[in-house]
Amino acid sequence: MKKENWLIIFTLVLLLTLPAFARDAFQLHLLIVSGIYVVLAISLNLIFLTGQLSIAHGAMMGIGAYTSALMSLKLNWPVFICMPTGALVSGLVGFIIGLLVLRITGIYFAIVTFAFGEIVVLAFLTWESLFGGPNGILNIPSPTFKFPGLFEVSFSSKLAYYYLILLTVFIAIFIFRRFNLSYLGRACRAIAKSERLAKSIGINAMYYKLLAFSVGNLFAGLAGALYAHYLHYIGPGYFSFHESVHIIVAVVIGGVGTLLGPILGAIFLTYLPEFLRAARDYEMMIYAFILILVLKFMPEGLYGGLNSVKNTVRLFFSRGEEQGGPVRS
């Protein structure tokens, strides 16, 4: 078997047995939150693939979360139907907004999404009868999977929820990988490099941008719904501008456009406050400082940085071989 396959199997086994290593409920909680952020970072990265920076990802996550929570509470629908519906609503909103604003590019697109995100959060805040205003929504139920007459699985425990999140992460990775490696991904990267050139060789830029934006927002909505039914509580503050920035930071620190980068970035950012516990007051400053350092010295992110270290090491050893060192077979 190839080396890569062994690595994948090892990672899979590690991920499946990871809860056994968690010493307490809080560590399991961190694993679950990392998983949710991994999904968010991957989905934002998908939008970023076309060169468009969305500052509405937190708001899109909020749309999914609120839709799913409200449907399960007010309509009493089973959570396993509410969550995909929440995701679909986010995707649909993304599609409609994308249809309107995706022809705007660069900084202007970033500002439009920023304005849209603010509107969504203001709506959560002001429409109290529906969204609960600043108090948010309480007592959101846990998902239970019922198969009539046969069995019933409840996801109220953290352990069960971990596997649910893991499944979602796998789906997100699978879709991103298929998207990225196929014609779709190449078209998106061409659009990001130069939209005019891409159009001139017959790439329908609007189509690919819209596809990436809708699918990305769909997963943001799914992550939001998973978040809502995990915490049992949501409020407008969870989906603010700062949330959107946090997801952008995860993608940028990890490495824009790569598969592993955003995953690394999301996990890194979730565990960062734990490492900085001694310096809690300085946490946000260190966070900002790391972002500045990464942008300045590692423009390809942690993943790119690790890769270049690996290449340097490899180069170092291969030079040794050329000078008559031991030859590997």
Binding site: L53, G106, I107, A110, V245, I248, V249, V252, D281, Y282, M284, M285, Y287, A288, F289, L291, I292, L295, K296, P299
Partner: peptide, 29 residues
Amino acid sequence: VFRPLLHSPLNVLIVSLAVSIFLQHLSQL
């Protein structure tokens, strides 16, 4: 902070967010 990134407006936007967070929390501290 800004000058090394000026060739990419989106990176400048992101780094300005970082500067904003940094200064905000510095003065809160």
